[in-house]
Design a protein around this nucleic acid. Structure first.
Lengths: 241, 241
DNA sequence: CCAAAAGTGTTCAGCTTACACCCATGA
DNA sequence: TCATGGGTGTAAGCTGAACACTTTTGG
């Protein structure tokens, strides 16, 4: 009899919200990369029903020991082999019919990846593929909405925060950087003015090395210097393109 | 025997994710108002354990028939009587210990309210209170983080989208509007230049009526004209303060 | 030598910033 | 009449957009 009373008490203490409903929670990742002058997404064929075999973002269900952030990071590492990737939550999707299987909430993250650094074997063995932003196939559920929203977010953010460098190799040229911005923003920039603008912030370090793959003259390599950027923003300036 | 087989099939179809974990999901609202020249938050004393009686944001558990958006709207209506309020999701909080009771994810929204329009009796009867932004008491769980993040979001957004007007009465004066921006941005603006800037966008309609409560000369009332704003932004311009 | 990409220089309109100054009126 | 907040005017300087021009080099 005493044991019975105890068990009630324990339940009372540990289950504050017993009468409230619970939900499946997924974490989906919109993974951006930049390669051969094109902005791309890493997509995969879904491996389980419903809609098995259709194109999809990467994701998984949130596990009890994870935060959303760590869940997203786990997914990213699983598909690209990368750790400590630029990753940012942007929206939680909750429409009632969004997953035709059961009710699932999905918290969406976008990731910015240096494609060169990814583990190509890993990506390939999982049946994942980098696909140009202008060429996205039909996606499952509301994944196209997620892609659209992520695009809007980076379109805005890349103008005020140094996001672009997350998508380029350590060493890059100014014309390359400009092309990246043009891909994200979806319009041409004046190269004289772009160059002046980015150099005026003094956050790039020029290297004594040229990339001759795209022109005979060759373009100098630069690196993004985080310390210079911190100095720049701490003296009250804002990154802006 | 046939019934048994059927029941297995039904389970198989309707329970795609049976083995996955489920979570409580809360929706919390950071409710902003502007009154007597001060930016304020609507806060409440928590009515259930854990931390019963402590200051808290408004929120509730997501119900099965709701989206996150409609849940936030339900909470808002419950505490203010208002419908169709400006409401925007900004982050989903998922730290493991965030609610000491049980694991709960919380999706946070911020709302911008015209305090004058709220149902004061409703607010009062629920033990809710408008508290100046500089005077926030200790809040439960990670609610202070939510407030901080919401502040950052509106600090940024109010400069590029006409959010401010959601916090003011239909009719307001330029000095009033300026004070609001100063409260949000946390620094003084030059009033000559502020006035020129806001009027140059031609999104305000001047009324033949003055507010004499703050000065002897009186300041003209204006209204924010949505049609003029749409025209303005459709001709390729951006709202900016 | 030419084409084509990389990189520099110059102009000008328009906007921001800072601040001086006028206006209206209740006490 | 004067203190106070509302509101206007303007000059200096900076910035962004446009574009002409120079440099480099492989074919």
């Amino acid at each position: 009899m005493h044991l019975f009373v105890l068990s009630i008490l324990v339940k009372k203490i540990s289950a504050y919200y017993a009468e409230e409903p619970k939900y499946f929670v997924a974490v989906d990742c919109v993974i951006f990369g930049f390669d051969k002058g094109k902005l791309k997404l890493l997509l995969v064929k879904r491996f389980r029903p419903p809609e098995k075999g259709e194109w999809s973002l990467m994701g998984d269900f949130l596990q009890p020991t994870e935060t959303l952030e760590s869940s997203a990071q786990r997914t990213l590492t699983k598909w690209t082999g990368l750790q400590n990737v630029f990753l940012e939550q942007f929206y939680c999707f909750s429409n009632l019919g969004r997953d035709p299987g059961e009710r699932v909430l999905s918290v969406a993250y976008y990731a910015l990846i240096k494609i060169d650094d990814t583990d190509k074997k890993l990506t390939k063995s999982h049946d994942a593929q980098w696909i140009e932003i202008g060429n996205i196939p039909k996606l499952i559920f509301d994944h196209q909405d997620m892609v659209n929203m992520a695009m809007e977010v980076i379109k805005h953010k890349c103008r005020f925060e140094p996001l672009g460098f997350e998508l380029l190799p350590e060493q890059f040229t100014i014309p390359q950087l400009q092309k990246l911005y043009e891909e994200i923003l979806q319009f041409k920039l004046d190269n004289a003015n772009f160059r002046k603008k980015i150099l005026s912030m003094k956050v790039l370090k020029k290297l004594n090395k040229k990339d001759k793959s795209l022109s005979k003259k060759g373009a100098y390599y630069y690196t993004f210097d985080k310390d210079m950027y911190i100095k720049y923003s701490e003296s009250g300036n804002f990154f802006e393109i």
